[in-house]
Nucleic acid binder design. Structure first.
Lengths: 242, 242
DNA sequence: GAGTGGTCTAGACCACGAG
DNA sequence: TCGTGGTCTAGACCACTCA
């Protein structure tokens, strides 16, 4: 049961994984070329590439086209704290976590109308945040707010900081987490392989009048991101509903 | 930017995806064999298999070894509601969602000691839940409770139902969600491809004395599972406590 | 046993990165 | 330009399902 089919690529992946974890292959180091590795393990190139794909899916190595395969630096884990008010992932930013922000004016369409509960073609502001931790991309956020809550002409960075002050207190924050493979665009922007799962979080913030004041689509690389949701003194749901 | 590399497998996947969404290929239907499809699209078998792998990753088709590729029935989405008290995924079970439960006595080791904050080799009860919705596997849960909270000799189903009554009220429930690829075991148990991401939720329940009374490791197939966490009045915490 | 998918081979050609 | 990874080919052999 533990070995449904003893495949070669798993054996190779296990060997390389050991070399990485034992430090024989150090972080940042370049692996031998795929042709060399294929020769060493006596397998064909597709088989060796499948082995590397496994390690890539675990986030252990990074492929750079035209350059080689590199052992990834063990990245700090990203911790998304749920129930939050801040628009982006709110890790304590003691390290150099800088964010590129770009705002766009657009009109509601498609699933955005449902998320924000607005009528089609009503004005929205999209805030696109791409966070970097040093060199490596960290998280991608697309935040949509009704147009009147985000006046145009304000630089993105300022807008993000001020959003919380400009609206009435929130009544409810609902966060939906799901796991999926990244789109092509997300994979390239986050510099992850398209076989590495992402943690996608959709956050809907509603004010006391029931109006949706923010819809945020967050995408975090699955190999180093967690989202925690803490609830204190939860009520017994079954009793509460009765 | 939209077409970094115009690959053939994407074109084939797009075509098949269209056929599925337009109903030309109906749910449950078997696709032509891979050899036939390869001939139809004039590609080699590995290329065609790559195309099918894409659809598999999206949960659109299911491969059954020795039988064929089948269009999957659009499965009801699994909704895991966070902040909960019930041990397993608590979808309103109006449909035939039956769960296989198996309990095992074991002793704490490895990461379990950290999760439950118990000393190594202290007795634990493992409750392994596998839910099915009709034919298709639904979710996998491994629940660990300190041995004294789960007396031996009680059948698993009864134990699960009684757990909530046997312990003091909870003070805190912390849930950590992450996205990753399934282990080989999880992939076979949930009958998903190993390229399909899973949503893994670790739930730690603490009672009022600070003791961990339950650690649950939930695995949900990423193509049809979401986890929602709702927080009301996040700014006005005192009201909720009153 | 016939047909199917699962794995693997040994190449080919193209696209990208760095010197 | 040269070495690298990215994609693809046209097979082979094994394991599984089902009649």
């Amino acid at each position: 049961m533990t070995r449904p089919t003893p495949t070669r690529r798993h054996a190779i992946a296990d060997d390389l994984r050991n070399q990485i974890s034992t430090g024989r292959l150090k972080a940042g180091e370049r692996l031998p070329s795929e042709a060399q590795l294929a020769a060493r393990y006596r397998v064909s190139t597709p088989t060796l590439r499948n082995a590397l794909a496994l390690l890539q899916g675990e986030g252990l190595i990074e492929k750079i086209h035209g350059s080689g395969n590199y052992v990834r630096h063990p990245l700090r884990r990203i911790l998304y704290v749920g129930g939050g008010c801040a628009p982006a992932a709110q890790t304590p930013t003691e390290w150099d976590l800088h964010t590129t922000v770009r705002t766009t004016q657009l009109r509601a369409h498609g699933h955005l109308t449902a998320l924000l509960k607005v009528s089609p073609r009503s004005p929205l502001t999209e805030i696109l945040c791409l966070s970097h931790e040093g060199e490596s991309p960290h998280s991608l956020a697309r935040i949509y707010v009704p147009g009147d809550l985000a006046p145009a002409g304000i630089p993105g960075e300022v807008l993000v900081a001020r959003l919380a002050d400009m609206r009435p207190p929130l009544a409810e924050v609902q966060e939906k987490a799901s796991a999926r493979l990244p789109t092509e665009e997300e994979a390239t922007v986050l510099r992850i392989s398209s076989t590495l799962a992402v943690l996608a979080i959709t956050r809907i913030a509603t004010d006391t009048t029931g109006r949706v004041v923010e819809a945020a689509l967050l995408v975090l690389p699955g190999d180093r991101a967690d989202a925690v949701f803490t609830i204190r003194h939860p009520v017994d749901v079954r009793r509460a509903e009765a």
